[in-house]
Design a protein around this nucleic acid. Structure first.
Length: 416
DNA sequence: TCTGGGGTCCTAGGACCC
DNA sequence: TCTGGGGTCCTAGGACCC
């Protein structure tokens, strides 16, 4: 009847569930999911926002993205725990490992969300709802956390369905159910309708997803350009994107950091930029890529952001080279306002080849490249802070800033 | 005492070329 | 004195996602 059957698997309150599960496995008796709790950053380091919350915390109207201070005002007893990204990656991998038993077509959409193509699989694991229920139970029994699973004939509808009532539920949203299940929802619930689009739509008298579906696409184009047509299609349940096994090639690599204090001098700013370049360039090299476009971003202490970018004549992944370009960009654009956050990003990526180094200055560049290679291998062996540039000694700056998605974690069950 | 960090895609405006 | 239009590339900024 349905040509395709797509599942969207979404971990309920992922960071918080994973932390709760991990604590139970490590002998804690309290389940964080049963009390008002949240995963949050460090207030002292000016990173104090809510990253995830428990369902009891949700009842206090605590929202992801708001500051811890606001959250404490709503719920003084809120239990806040710092994030642990390594744990999240392990849990995510363990879940995918299970999902692979039910279809070869799985797309990791984020650390806590997957699409799975269940088309023509009924004879193996039963009807879509039966299979989804089986998957849910297996994940809970093996790994200790709950997921919502949305089922439909395309990815958009499956994703919308997994967002219905939570936790630990399976929902369908086939095209014939759109009118009843999706159209009454407020416009902001639609995938790809954020704050800004919602505001424009409200001004046009469009309040629900149904209103949007029935609106005139020409009008939408006038006010929201191509994005208007995209969300009109979504409101009508139309999406033809495929569950893609291979993850898209990386388009860019970046790291940014909020500094615990306002930076008012060039020297400190450049130290931070160097530490960002260290992590960005190491990631570049690990992917065997080089970059032809370097980009920096500055956020001031009053939250004004601006950026600057530059094309390179030749691709590079050498820390020293990228750092020099970053410094030039910084000098060209910094307006001397106190800095809260700095970011470095590289894009226009190509497979790195050593040939481009032969054009000129060969010995110098080869030396730098060998330096990077040795630093990389030391860090790989002994950790990112095992080796650091002399300028970081006695400086109040971490010599290596930035998260790196780490691969090849053992699956979780082997840790339990 | 406010307000993270990792991404992708789109658009407007200017430069430049024919 | 007036005054084309098509195309591409580049940049900065904004919107959206998790």
């Amino acid at each position: 009847m349905h040509s395709k059957v797509i599942f969207h698997i979404d971990v309920n309150s992922a960071y918080l569930s994973w932390e709760a599960t991990s604590r139970l496995q490590n002998g804690h008796s309290l389940d964080l999911r049963t009390i008002p709790s949240a995963i949050g950053g460090d207030v002292d380091k000016r990173r104090g926002i809510i990253l995830a919350k428990s369902i009891p915390a949700k009842k206090y109207n605590i929202k992801t993205g708001e500051s811890l201070m606001e959250a404490f005002k709503k719920c003084p007893d809120l239990k806040v725990v710092p994030p642990n990204y390594d744990l999240y990656m392990q849990c995510s991998n363990a879940m995918v490992h299970i999902l692979k038993d039910y279809s070869p077509f799985i797309q990791r959409y984020s650390v806590d969300e997957c699409f799975l193509d269940y088309s023509n699989m009924d004879e193996h694991f039963g009807s879509p709802v039966q299979a989804a229920t089986t998957i849910q139970t297996r994940i809970y029994n093996a790994l200790g956390f709950t997921v919502n699973i949305g089922i439909s004939s395309n990815k958009l509808l499956a994703k919308m369905a997994s967002d219905f009532q939570k936790p630990n539920l399976v929902h369908t949203l086939f095209p014939e159910e759109i009118e009843k299940k999706m159209w009454p929802l407020p416009i902001g619930d639609l995938f790809m309708v954020g704050k800004s689009s919602a505001k424009k739509l409200l001004n046009l008298g469009i309040y629900t997803i149904g209103d949007l579906a029935k609106s005139n696409p020409d009008l939408l184009y006038t006010h929201l350009k191509s994005h208007g047509l995209l969300i009109w299609n979504y409101a009508n349940g139309m999406d033809h994107s495929l569950v893609s096994k291979e993850s898209d090639p990386v388009k860019g690599i970046g790291n940014s950091t909020t500094i615990p204090f306002d930076v008012e001098d060039e020297k400190t700013a450049k130290l931070i930029l160097l530490s960002l370049c260290e992590s960005v360039c190491m990631r570049l090299r690990q992917s065997n890529l080089s970059s032809e476009l370097v980009h920096i971003k500055i956020k001031t202490n009053n939250f004004h952001s601006y950026s600057h970018q530059k094309k390179l004549l030749y691709g590079s992944n050498i820390t020293h080279t990228i750092y020099q370009e970053v410094c030039l960009l910084f000098d060209e654009v910094w307006d001397k306002e106190p800095i809260r956050q700095l970011g470095v990003r590289v894009s226009n990526l190509n497979a790195s080849t050593k040939e481009q180094l032969n054009l000129f200055d060969t010995t110098h560049k080869e030396k730098l490249q060998r330096l990077d290679d040795s630093i990389d291998s030391i860090r790989k062996k002994y950790g990112n802070e095992a080796i650091l540039r002399g300028c970081f000694i006695n400086a109040p700056i971490k010599p290596f800033v930035g998260g790196m998605p780490t691969k090849d974690y053992p699956i979780m069950s082997s840790l339990l």
